[in-house]
Design a protein around this nucleic acid. Structure first.
Ligand code: NAD
Ligand code: NAD
Lengths: 225, 225
DNA sequence: GTGACTTTGTGCATCGGTTCACAAAAGGAT
DNA sequence: ATCCTTTTGTGAACCGATGCACAAAGTCAC
C-alpha cells in the first residue's frame, strides 16, 4: 500500500482500450441475468479473450477485484463506463444520409451507450428536410452552425468517397476531433484529431485471403508463378 | 541469392494482410489516373502508412520493385490481387435483411472487388420473397441448400444479436469457413473458421475514450475518485 | 483463529510488428 | 565505361502486447 490510489495511471494501452467495450458488453449481459460477481476466467470466456489478458487490462484501471472471489459486476460496469467516458452523453452527427447513413441513424445500439444522434446532414435537396428516425435532415451548408449549436463532438462520415475529405476538413474546422469514417478513403487530418475507419471491403478481402489459403493450401501449392 | 525465387514464403504477417487492401485501393486510384510507376514513398503517402513498412509488406509477396525506379502500378495491382485471392470471384451471402442488411446488399463497393452477392436470407415472412437490389430474399430455412447450390463461401451476418450464434452454427455446419459479423456478440466457432467482426458501437466507445482524455486531460486531472 | 482453497495482480520471457538506416541495385548522364 | 542519383530490400534495434506461472491476498468452513 505504498502509493495508495495510484492506479490513476494516465496511459492505458491502446489494445486495452479497444477491449474495454467488449468487457462492458459482456458485463451488461451478466448484470441483466442477475449475476453479482464474476471471475476473470468467466468474464474472459464471455468476452472471447485470454483470462490473463483480461486481468492485466483491468489492472490498468485500478485494483477492482477481490482475490478468491472475482469482480463485482455492477461496480466493474461503472468503472469501465467511467474510464471510457460513457457516464456523460455524447452528441453524434451523421453526415450523408444514403443507404448506410439511414441504417446508422435508425440503429438503436447507438443510444444504448450514451451516444445520442444530435443531427444528420446531407447535400441532396431531395433528402434535406426529410424526417429520418425522428430527426430532421439538415443541409450540409448548416454543418458548422449546427455542430456548434448542438455541441456535437463525434462525427460519423457516410458520404461517398469523393466527398469525404472535404466534409472531414469542414468538421475539423468546426472543432470536431473525433471522426468515424465509413468512406473508403484515407483521410488527412491535423494532429490531435482521431479518425477511426470501418471498411467493409477490406474485411472481406482479408477473409478472402484466408479462405484462399484454406482452399488452396493443402492441394495446389505448386503453381509455378 | 542462395534460395532464388523463395519469396514464395507461406506465412504473410497478419498485419501485412490487413494493409494489402489499402495499397490495392491506392494503386487502383493511380492506375485510373494513368500513373505507370510509383515509389514506395508516394504509395505510402497515398495509403497513409510509413514507407519502410510498405516496402517490408511488399517484400513479403516477392521482389516486385525496381531500385531507383519504384513499382509498376499494373503489375503490383495484379500481384496483390492474386495474393489476396481477388482474381477469383467469391460468392457472398447476407443473412438478415433489416436496416443494415439492406444497405449492404445495395452497396456497389462489394462487387467492384470480386465479391458477388449470391443470396440474401431473412426469417421474417413479410420480407421473404421481396426483391432487394435485384435479389430474391430467401427464407432462412433454405440456408443450407442455397449456400451449397450457389457455392457461397463467405457469409455476412446482419441479424439481431440474439439470432447470430444460431445462424452462425448453421452456416458453419453448411461448410462456410469465413464469416463477417455485424451483430454485437462474440461468436463461438470451431477451429479453421475465420470470423471478423465490425462493431460500430465499439468504435464509438474508443473515440469517446480519447475525446474524454483530450477534453479532460489538461484541465481536471485531479478528480480524487 | 487456523488451514485449505480460490482467484487476483504482476514479473518475466516471448513474440510480432514497427522503424531506422544503409548497402546493394538499377538507371541515366556524361 | 564511370560516376552520380534514386530507390529498393532488409538487418537490427526497439516497442508494445501477449501469455505463462506464481506469490500475495482474500474467502470460507470449521
Ligand atoms: N452501403 C454500404 O453498405 C456501405 C458499406 C461500406 C462502405 N460504404 C461507404 O459508405 C459511404 C456511403 O454509402 P451509401 O451506400 O450510403 O452511399 P449513398 O450514395 O447511398 O449515400 C451517400 C449520401 O451522401 C450524400 N452526400 C453526397 N455528398 C455529400 C456532401 N458533400 N455532404 C453531405 N452529404 C453528401 C448523398 O446525397 C447521399 O445521400 C460510401 O463512401 C460508401 O463507400 C457503404
Ligand atoms: N443498423 C446499424 O447501423 C447497425 C450498426 C451496427 C450494428 N448493427 C447490428 O447489425 C444487426 C442488424 O441490424 P439492423 O439494424 O439491420 O437490425 P434489423 O432488426 O433492422 O434487421 C434484422 C433482420 O434480421 C432478420 N432476422 C431475425 N432473426 C433472423 C434469423 N434467425 N435468420 C435470419 N434473419 C433473421 C429480421 O427479420 C430483420 O429483418 C444487429 O445485430 C445490429 O446490432 C446494426
Amino acid at each position: 500500500m505504498k502509493s495508495p490510489s495510484h492506479p490513476r495511471d494516465r496511459g492505458i494501452p491502446e489494445a486495452t482500450v479497444a477491449r474495454l467495450p467488449l468487457y462492458l458488453r459482456a458485463l451488461h449481459g451478466m448484470a441483466e441475468r442477475g449475476v453479482a460477481t464474476v471471475s476473470s476466467e468467466d468474464l474472459a470466456v464471455a468476452a472471447g479473450v485470454n483470462s490473463a489478458k483480461l486481468r492485466k487490462d483491468l489492472s490498468h484501471l485500478g485494483s477492482y477485484g477481490t482475490r478468491g472471489v472475482g469482480y463485482d459486476v455492477e461496480y466493474l460496469v461503472y468503472q469501465i463506463s467511467r474510464e471510457l467516458g460513457l457516464t456523460q452523453d455524447w452528441a453524434v452527427a451523421i453526415v450523408g444520409v444514403g443507404n448506410l447513413g439511414r441504417a446508422l441513424a435508425g440503429y438503436g445500439g447507438f443510444v444504448s451507450r450514451g451516444f445520442r444522434i444530435a443531427a444528420v446532414f446531407d447535400a441532396d435537396p431531395e433528402i434535406v428536410g426529410d424526417d429520418i428516425a425522428g430527426l430532421n435532415v439538415e443541409h450540409i451548408d448548416e454543418l458548422e452552425a449546427v455542430i456548434k449549436r448542438r455541441g456535437v463532438s463525434i462525427v460519423v462520415l457516410a458520404t461517398p468517397a469523393a466527398a469525404a475529405q472535404e466534409v472531414c476538413d469542414r468538421v475539423v474546422a468546426a472543432g470536431v476531433t473525433s471522426i468515424l469514417n465509413f468512406a473508403p478513403v484515407v483521410l488527412t487530418v491535423p494532429d490531435g484529431v482521431d479518425v477511426r475507419k470501418v471498411d467493409l471491403s477490406i474485411e472481406l478481402q482479408i477473409l478472402a485471403f484466408h479462405e484462399q489459403r484454406k482452399a488452396g493450401g493443402p492441394l495446389m501449392a505448386v503453381d509455378s508463378q
